[in-house]
Every structure is written in structure tokens, then in C-alpha cells.
Write a protein that binds this DNA or RNA. Structure first.
Lengths: 226, 226
DNA sequence: CACTGGTTTCGATGATGATCGAAATATGGA
DNA sequence: TCCATATTTCGATCATCATCGAAACCAGTG
């Protein structure tokens, strides 16, 4: 499959919409994707089959549904890069984007947090000396080491994962970096376990609970009352 | 401009070919790009205008020519990522790709080296302790610091550039990392100044001169007699 | 002021392919 | 076994757009 064919797999509104819906990392059934893209199930089925052929998507049969997801994190990263090129979706008169588009406040990017909440967290951690910039990634300082461990993260284990430890991930809405990689994923998992955030599946929106607002403030000094 | 529109700008053979021809970092005139893509000048002109509109390309008028180039290194990186997804161009019976496709041996990627030469260089530097892996990027060690400075690189200046210092860049042919970023660019520049490599403009192929082979061996311990 | 070569505009054609209605297939439940 | 739901296949339609010939445009050059 040549370059232009892979690219063409995303060059149509319905396909781009379906792929973008999957950047959250969830696997969604075909019917749901059809609805999101605003096309009939047969059209969606056609597109999905082709994107699977092209290696962009993977499919898991389960029950009578077929769940589609991105084939790899690499695809998600390319989509985010492309979105950064094309610029965030335009809103009329841009009346404080964050107030309008909930995706800009707190959302998931595959398996870590993104949006203004994630950026605020990264900023605060850096200001408090938990993490420092290190080329394209973050590095956890001595202070941060203790802090994260106290919070319940097993940093040594995270470092031994094959994936990047603390990727500096730039998203399209803020155009500023937040924490991705193994650390970013672990943080989101821990937040969920602690009931600080809730995430409706099939959606990238993240809801911060009231206990989460308190926790984020007490533990990290982040004001999540956006 | 929405995601799918930007993507669609590359989803056709002629456009992909033209963009791919520009990944070398050179600016090429419209007629040359038309020839490379195998289309008539009028068709090429049409595509080029649209890609400029979409922010993928930039154009410089000079004399009676119009030189087109990629709008930014970010575009080059996306193209390389996409090529890694689609897989390298398929050759029949793949009889030792590197022996067949000169692009796989030594080529330029925008402003740094790529191909097997670049990978060999990165491997050797790492084995000799000049550089170390650091998350997504490379880091220059104490040893490397002295070595590079002795070679004539101004590392402090490179670190102060806005761009990443030593990006770990994975290319499609080797699927292994080599040195990009400011350091990668500086190395290629220095190699060219020293007459170690020659690069014909408008082409991504890099030729290692005989003095270059000696220099690479003596200075870095790299055997460039591919 | 023509002339040349590079580039763009215009107009028309032709092919690709996105889309949907209708029907077939698959899978679990009553 | 029959039904309901999810998904795919088939066939046809329709819009988009890549492409090229012809001609205009533009910038140096003689």
C-alpha cells in the first residue's frame, strides 16, 4: 500500500470523523461510528473495512458487535499531528474556546489526559519542581519521585515499560505540552481508580468529580474548577 | 481548514509524489515537480496552489521560477510517519533493499542524514558512549561533548536553538533511529563543509566521498564503505 | 518591442469513489 | 424455530475532482 493510498483513507469527512472519534483510545462499534460520522451504516461499513485493510484500524468481534479501534498509538499520534497542522476546529467568533468546547477542558488522548486540565497539571508539576523539561520529554526530579510514589505510582515499573516514560505531548487545543507516555497513562488510571475523574466510554470527555477537585488541589496544587 | 481537507491534499498520487520529493528539504521549481510526479505542468500547478493554500507547502518566487518547498519540518515529519505506516515502497523479491534502492543507504531528511549511514552513525556513537538514549531523544554524554566540540560543533549554541536538540528520528527504510534535530542538522552541515559528503540538490541521495570515508572512520569509527 | 520559457487560468472530459436503498448475512435471544 | 438487531454486500446514482489541451500571463533577454 503506497503513501497516497494510506493518506486517502483519511481524506474524506466521514472517515476523518470516524478516525478522530477513535483517538480517545476506545473501541467503538460500527453503528456508533456511523452515527458519529453522520452516514448510514452501510457507508460506514465500507469505510471501516477499507481502513482496516490499510492498517489504520483494527477490529475485534465481540458478541454481535464489531468494535473498531485505532491500529496503534502511532496512528493516534499522526492524527494529532495532522490536527495540529490543520488547526483546531474553527468556532464562530471564538468566544473563549474552552468555555464552548468541552473537549478543550479535559479529555483523554488514547490513554492519558489532555486538554487544559492536563496542561495545568503539567505546568503546576513543573513549577513545583516535580518534573523538568528534558528535550522532547519530561523528567521526574527527586522531589517528584517521592511525590508520585506517595500518590501510589510505581515509577520503577513504569520506567521499565517499553513505551516512553513521560512523553511531552502537544495537543491541538492548547498547543502546549502535557504529560503522555507511561507516566501520563498511569496518572489517568490512578485518577480514575481514586474516583477523581470519570470518563464515559466512547467519548473523550473527562469529568472531574468533586472529590477529584479537592484531591487535585491538595495533592498537586491544581485548581480543577475550570 | 478541517482535518480531512488537509489530509486530502496528499491523498492523490501526484500530490503525494510531489510532497515526497520535497522531504529532502530542497525547494524545487514547479516544472521539476511536475516531471517527478508524471503530470503536466498545468496539473502540477493546480495541485501546488492547493497545497500552498492548505499550509503544506511554501513558495518562493525567484527569477522566473517558483520554488516550492515544505512549509515546515513538521510536515516532513508527518510524511515520514505516514511512510512508516504505509511501509517502505515494495520491491519485487526484495533482493537486499539497501543494494537496490540508493535512498536506503544515505539520504537527507529535510536537513539531517537518514538511511543506513545515519543509523550506523547513531549506533556507533552510542556504542562509544558519545550519546545515550533519553526517552524519545538522544543526550550527549561528557565524552560526546568533547568529541563533538573537537569536531567543530558549537554544542551550546545548538542547545539554545528553539528546535529540539537531538531528536531520535525513525525513518521508513531502516525502521531504526538516527540523529535528527539541531545536532543532526549541524552534523550534516559539517560533513558537507568538510567535503565528506556531497548532496545533489533536488535529490535526497547523499554521496560519501573518499575523504569522507576516511574521516568517518577516524573520527567516529563508522565504516561508510557500504 | 518581439521572443522565449516557465507558470497559471480556463474549460471540458472522464474516472474515481462516496453515498444510499434494498437485500443478504450473521448472531444472539425468545 | 422464528425473530430482532448488527453488519455487510450489491447495485445504481451522483458529485467531486484529477487531468489535459488551449490559451493567457509574466519575467527576463535579445
Amino acid at each position: 500500500m503506497e503513501l497516497h493510498k494510506v493518506v486517502a483513507l483519511l481524506g474524506v469527512p466521514a472517515r476523518a470523523a470516524m478516525a478522530w472519534a477513535l483517538v480517545g483510545g476506545d473501541a467503538l462499534p460500527a453503528s456508533e461510528l456511523a452515527y458519529r460520522a453522520g452516514v448510514t451504516p452501510q457507508t460506514a461499513s465500507h469505510h471501516l473495512a477499507r481502513m482496516v485493510d490499510g492498517g489504520l484500524l483494527a477490529v475485534e468481534r465481540c458478541l454481535r458487535y464489531r468494535y473498531y479501534r485505532l491500529a496503534s498509538p502511532a496512528v493516534a499520534e499522526i492524527l494529532e499531528s495532522l490536527m495540529a497542522l490543520s488547526g483546531p476546529p474553527i468556532l464562530k467568533n471564538r468566544p473563549d474556546r474552552a468555555a464552548v468546547d468541552p473537549l478543550c477542558q479535559a479529555r483523554s488522548c488514547y490513554d492519558h489526559l489532555a486538554g487544559s486540565l492536563a496542561v495545568a497539571l503539567a505546568d503546576t508539576l513543573r513549577r513545583n519542581g516535580w518534573i523538568s523539561l528534558q528535550e522532547r520529554d519530561y523528567q521526574v526530579t527527586e522531589i517528584g519521585e517521592h511525590g508520585f510514589v506517595a500518590f501510589g505510582l510505581d515509577l520503577p515499573a513504569l520506567r521499565h515499560q517499553r513505551r516512553l516514560f513521560a512523553r511531552r505531548c502537544i495537543d491541538w487545543s492548547e498547543r502546549r505540552p502535557h504529560i503522555g507516555g507511561a507516566l501520563g497513562a498511569a496518572l489517568m488510571t490512578r485518577f480514575q481508580e481514586s474516583g477523581w475523574i470519570r470518563k464515559n466510554p466512547g467519548d473523550r470527555k473527562i469529568w472531574v468529580t468533586s472529590v477529584g477537585q479537592q484531591g487535585l488541589w491538595k495533592t498537586f496544587g491544581v485548581d480543577a474548577t475550570l
